[in-house]
Amino acid sequence: MPAPILQVRDLRTQFLTDGGVVTAVDGVSFDLFPGESLGIVGESGSGKSVTALSLLRLVPDPGRVVGGKVLFRNQDLLQLSDDEIRQIRGRDIAMIFQDPQSSLNPVLTTGFQIAEAMQAHGKAKAEANARTVELLKRVRIPAAESRVKDFPHQLSGGMRQRAMIAMGLANAPSILIADEPTTALDVTVQAQILELLGDLNRELGAAIVMITHNMGVVAGLCSRVIVMYAGHIVEEGPVEEIFERPQHPYTWSLLRSIPRVDALRHERLRSIEGIAPDLLRPPSGCRFHPRCPFRIERCFTDEPTLEEVATNQRAACWVTMERARREMHADDLLDIRPGAGSGVHPGEQI
């Protein structure tokens, strides 16, 4: 396996709110490999966006990255000066956001906003303008030559997101972070955008970090996936493994809640039972234990750490670990891990 292009170590980001300190990202570590497509999934509020924003130090007030390392090309992005991190943003690591409507400046033309991304990193104006048209063609915007002069409000939602992607690709970054790029779009447009991102990932070789609620999106686009819950990574591994053998009960319930194809368009996710944790007062022990159908005593008190549970697959769950430990002692014990075996639900076994 090649060396990772990005190594995140023990990243911690806090918000100083009126109610107290919210640790939105709490000790997150992961690697990103060149050209791969990594999914980050989790419920709303689990810290996906804040993680992504922390990488580029774009966390809004009152948020602050309080610890950890983000290693990119042997330098820690968290230690760079403001000017140095600015050089990285948009050139080496680009980011596109959820709502293209609000993410584009309404008073500047789309073309200008794309060209600007290149000029910020030293490209001459004429060259930047020429490449803007090419980029728009590349993200399959029809009549690209005339569209560059359009303002965001003159474009459709799908076209706006294509323009955002073009902006992200403008400097041929080695990493493209996409934070729920399809959530605000129509289902049919969603599919087109995902297909486009897939193609670009293959053709351009940029590593993509795909943040989403949607396990379906992960299945379609990513090779590896990180599952987040309440600021922690609870499971990580190759997509096929995770889909077939989820090792964390939370992952398992996420998979169970993938909407069916014929479900209502606006029903994004069937929600998981129980309420999302209050990050001001996170639960003791494993943060998922209040909602966990498999919890054991230990889950109430001790916080599990991410452990290798299968080849390349890691999970932070006492149940899984207990089982793994017992398996080592008695290989012939009944396999009760969540989602083990195909089509058998752990709920039925316990």
């Binding site: 924003l53 580029l56 948009g90 609000s102 993410s103 584009l104 400046n105 500047l108 910020a120």
Partner: peptide, 21 residues
């Protein structure tokens, strides 16, 4: 607003962000 975050993510200078965006 989100578009200010976008402008930062592009790597624009802070003065450019404040004045132009």
């Amino acid at each position: 607003q989100d578009y200010i975050r976008t402008a930062r993510a592009k790597g624009l200078k802070e003065t450019v962000i404040m004045v132009r965006h």
